[in-house]
Amino acid sequence: MSNHTPTPWTVIGSRTVVSDRWIHLRADDCRDDRGHEIAPYYVLEPADWISVLAITTDGDAVIVEEYRHGAGVVALGTIGGAVEEGESALAAARRELREETGYAAGELIDLGATWANFGNHSNRVHHFLATGCVPTGERSLDDSEAIAVHLMPLEAAGPQLEQSYHLLTWYLARDVLARRGRA
């Protein structure tokens, strides 16, 4: 067993591999503190993401179902999306809730942020709980989105969430709701 204390690598070179509206990928040439070269090391640089577990005034979870091309599956999930440039995570959560579901929240609670995948992503996922949600109007989906909205009991929702950070949002939200005596 090694007791070598990890330290950040030194980046000795970096180049953009691809950059468009969907992805920004860079390749770093790195050196660790023992002189080992790690090159290329690929890093995805997406915008920060939000994940919102929405709860209606009746206590049901608002869950979305959509096709996820990376895995090639249609899956249930929390409301989510990218934080746009110049937008706060809170504003993105409010916007994505309205756009994807047509609902608005009575209260939006910041549950904290986690790294999306700190092995090779530079972004964070901002988790939110939206309570007192009510339908307020039309959804505004992107051209590439086909989203079905489902209402289900909160406890039934969690076991159906297969994306890791969606499930984490559910756990964090349950803790807040339990402290408030609502779970």
Results as ranks from 00 to 15, higher is better:
Glu84His: 13
Ile38Phe: 13
Arg174Ala: 09
Glu162Asp: 11
Leu154Thr: 05
His126Lys: 10
Val176Ala: 09
Ala89Tyr: 08
Gly181Met: 12
Glu155Phe: 01
Val11His: 12
Leu111Thr: 06
Ala178Gly: 12
His150Asp: 01
Arg34Gln: 14
Gly59Met: 09
Leu151Asp: 00
Ser51Lys: 01
Ile50Ala: 03
Asp29Ile: 11
Tyr165Val: 03
Ile63Ser: 02
Val64Gln: 05
Arg68Cys: 15
Gly13Arg: 15
Val18Asp: 05
Ala92Lys: 01
Leu151Arg: 00
Ser19Arg: 13
His121Val: 09
Gly81Cys: 05
Arg26Ala: 08
Val176Asp: 06
His24Ala: 07
Thr5Gln: 13
Phe128Met: 10
Thr16Met: 12
Glu84Phe: 13
Glu84Lys: 13
Gln163Thr: 11
Trp115Asn: 08
His24Met: 08
Leu53Val: 09
Tyr41Leu: 13
Glu162Ala: 13
Tyr171Cys: 07
Leu161Ser: 02
Cys133Phe: 00
Phe128Leu: 05
Ile55Phe: 03
Trp115Gln: 09
Glu107Ala: 15
Val17Pro: 08
Arg15Tyr: 13
Glu99Met: 07
Gly35Val: 08
Asp29Leu: 14
Glu45Ile: 04
Pro46Phe: 02
Ile147Tyr: 10
Ser51Arg: 00
Met152Tyr: 05
Gly158Ser: 07
Ala130Arg: 00
Asn117Leu: 06
Val73Phe: 14
Ala27Pro: 03
Asp29Glu: 14
Pro6Glu: 01
Ile12Leu: 15
Glu37His: 14
Leu53Met: 12
Glu85Phe: 10
Ser140Trp: 04
Val43His: 02
Leu97Ile: 06
Leu154Ala: 10
Glu99Lys: 05
Asp58Tyr: 13
Gly81Gln: 01
His69Asp: 15
Ala104Ser: 10
Pro159Ala: 04
Trp9Lys: 15
Val73Met: 15
Glu87Asp: 07
His121Ile: 04
Ala39Trp: 13
Arg180Pro: 11
His126Trp: 08
Ala116Gln: 04
Gly77Pro: 02
Val64Phe: 07
Arg31Lys: 14
Ala104Trp: 03
Val17Phe: 07
Leu108Asp: 07
Ile63Trp: 01
Gly102Thr: 00
Ile23Val: 13
Arg95Ala: 09
Trp115Glu: 08
Ala89Gln: 06
Pro159Trp: 03
Asp28Gly: 14
Asp142Tyr: 06
Val125Leu: 02
Arg139Lys: 04
Ile38Gln: 11
Val43Phe: 05
